[in-house]
């Protein structure tokens, strides 16, 4: 019945694939850069001394507020500490916080989402209501509430970010499970006479989890930003630590004299997030476009 519609699609995409192929080429460059950056940050997180010679907390009052130069690539802070070294050393904490927060959020979200999607009408309605209530604390608010109750600190920061982002993921996972559950291939599997347990383990769960890689990758970027937001507000990691958000918080009073104290740690967060996100998008495109099609 859709003979000619498919033709329209054949002709249309004929034009589109051509354009897309070119776009993909230029896109690849971005993916390579992102991958490179992620490797760099990972190295910095694993062994920062490979990338920076000095120590992050060597105070040298004689060298305070030096603008970026060859000796101090990214300048120095009020105590004369090298900003580049601190940014490199900060990678570990920021990355670990981002990864941990995402991991916790994902675990919560998978439990809630899969239970809702597979648990039948009442369980689904219950979890859905619960998520709806959590959604009434938008953005960082749930995280704020969490910090207000349990106090500031790294652990609460991680859990706060996880708790704040979990409802969104849970809803996406639930939707995914429901979509797969209603799909033609699940029906086909039942029609073949497969038992529900087999269909759930062989079709529903694996297919519903497929987009999670992408979700998690992008989630790490978001977690890093959220965590650094908390630190920036003085509600997370405390300033002497070289965590990126905390560095921004510490530099706030000197914005006028020493712009590099604010620009560079922030740039680290932005680039790191951007790299992780564009990798996530790349994976998504690969998923959507079919495998190796």
């Amino acid at each position: 019945m859709v003979t000619s519609l498919t033709e329209a699609l054949v002709v249309g995409p004929g034009i589109e694939t051509h354009v897309r192929r070119r776009r993909r080429l230029s896109f690849r460059l971005g993916v390579w850069l992102s991958a490179l950056l992620v490797v760099f940050v990972t190295v910095a997180a694993v062994d920062p001394s490979l990338l920076a010679s000095g120590a992050p907390d060597t105070i040298n009052l004689g060298h305070s507020f030096i603008a970026p130069s060859w000796s101090h690539l990214l300048g120095t802070d009020p105590s004369g500490r090298d900003v580049y070294t601190r940014v490199i050393y900060g990678a570990r904490q920021s990355l670990v916080i981002g990864l941990l927060a995402t991991l916790i959020a994902m675990v919560i979200a998978i439990i809630l989402g899969v239970t809702a999607g597979l648990g039948g009408r009442w369980v689904d309605a219950l979890i859905n209501r619960f998520l709806e209530v959590l959604f009434a604390f938008p953005g960082l608010l749930l995280a704020f509430l969490f910090v207000a109750i349990f106090g500031t600190g790294v652990v609460t920061e991680v859990v706060a970010v996880a708790v704040g982002s979990a409802p969104g993921y849970a809803r996406m996972i639930r939707g995914q499970v429901l979509a797969v559950k209603g799909s033609g291939y699940v029906e086909a599997a039942y029609a073949l006479g497969h038992a529900p347990r087999r269909v759930i383990s062989r079709q529903i769960v694996p297919n519903a989890m497929r987009p999670l890689v992408v979700l998690a990758t992008m989630g790490v970027g978001q977690s890093i930003v959220w965590a650094s937001s908390l630190s920036f507000l003085g509600l997370g990691v405390a300033p002497p630590s070289p965590e990126w958000g905390a560095m921004l918080d510490a530099g706030r009073d000197y914005t006028l004299q020493a712009w590099w104290l604010e620009i560079f740690p922030g740039l680290a967060i932005v680039l790191c997030t951007l790299a992780v996100t564009s990798l996530g998008r790349y994976f998504q495109q690969k998923l959507d476009g079919g495998i190796g099609a």
């Binding site: 033609g184 291939y185 006479g193 497929r210």
Partner: peptide, 21 residues
């Protein structure tokens, strides 16, 4: 369930009835 193999189906849109993986 054990007798389901006796009845098979072919859909209009086969693609959506195949597991994409």
């Amino acid at each position: 369930r054990s007798r389901r193999p006796l009845v098979s189906v072919i859909y209009q849109d086969p693609l959506s009835s195949f597991d994409p993986r």
